[in-house]
Design a protein around this nucleic acid. Sequence first.
DNA 1: CTATTATTCAAGAAAATAATTGAATAATAG
DNA 2: CTATTATTCAATTATTTTCTTGAATAATAG
Lengths: 221, 221
Amino acid sequence: MNPNRRFKDEIYEQFSRIGKAVSSPKRLELLDILCQGERTVEKLAKETALTIANTSQHLQVLKNSRLVEQEKQGLYVVYRPAPMVCDFLFSMRNVAENRIAEIEQIKKRFLEGKKGMEPMDREALLSRLETEDITLLDVRPAEEFRAGHINGALSVPLNELEFMLANLPKDQEIVAYCRGPYCVLSVQAVELLNQRGFNAVRLEEGVQDWKRMGLSLSTGK
Amino acid sequence: MNPNRRFKDEIYEQFSRIGKAVSSPKRLELLDILCQGERTVEKLAKETALTIANTSQHLQVLKNSRLVEQEKQGLYVVYRPAPMVCDFLFSMRNVAENRIAEIEQIKKRFLEGKKGMEPMDREALLSRLETEDITLLDVRPAEEFRAGHINGALSVPLNELEFMLANLPKDQEIVAYCRGPYCVLSVQAVELLNQRGFNAVRLEEGVQDWKRMGLSLSTGK
DNA sequence: CTATTATTCAAGAAAATAATTGAATAATAG
DNA sequence: CTATTATTCAATTATTTTCTTGAATAATAG
């Protein structure tokens, strides 16, 4: 074969390794979760509803295309996104959201009939947060809250929410957020709160989106 | 199935349409070419060394994942990258180049033993261009030159280069560029020039890279 | 050393994808 | 209307990918 052709074939073959890695819905979900913070195989399997073996295999694929890194920690193997990967994923999500109309439809259909799901105005939210006019809940697992959360947010993991209701105000609007538009924790939280007579709305943006918009996060307790 | 799980599955299924589109080396090459400017199926087939039917099928895949747009012009169908797609591709190439060591190896092996292939210092190039110390050749097809080229470059398409040699200086360094690091036009040009006793080097960056670095381009003749 | 737990490996079945081929369409020129 | 040309379609084959299952490995606790 022509060496020029051969060169191009070899080069694009390599580029396609990245494409193949992100051509599976499951692997995209795994990467998305990893961009929220490192995880063990077990946790990833649980969050994605895959079998452990299948999760492990997908992670091998991601590792072979250099999109994730792994580290053995005792009995566990912890996976992490490789540098640049979350930015790349963001760019991909951007294209998808702008070009693929079905995404908006699916979102709309899922949120249909649920109260408090309208997109919020960020400016309004920020100013109301400052005047303490609203209560902002971070409903992700406590560990993720510790790793970084929106300034002024309260950590109330979804599975503890039920037991924290007594401490929440009935006369003030409650805003719940989680990992982003495709995370359902805040959706469930808002549903529960509204059922119990609170006035709750969802902030669609997640911590990473918040960060990406140049807004500051806090860490720790 | 749990509606939350169903929602995620549906969403990531949609995201993966983008990934599937860029999981084939041939489609990546097609997209790369399209980011240089719109093309007919025929031209794309020729540039990628694919059959027309195969090219057409790949283009259908890209169209279905909304990464390209098409327009019928008489007997021809012209394809164009959709908005944002070239930026996404750039981000993907970035990840690949940084994470996949094989790419650098393949490049090195291909350029091995060829004269004038060392990366150039951009600053030095710019200042030498201003003092007219070097001759800058754009060896892409004339049409692409017209659509946009580096300020001060001369249009000498590779297949015309042989007949233009008499007009080129023997006492001055000649710098040739084309579409970028994976385009071989400038490589061939530099080889030919050096064989014929000129002092030629290759500028690895292509027009799009140049543009992306914030440097200005000219259009027209 | 043995049992337990997290992860990976290996093999097989089902599904999806890529390239090839020849035929079908659509636009235009004569 | 007929011939030509660019493109797409449809069917087939070969290849890859995904998921499942059960077994193998590796680290640790007792």
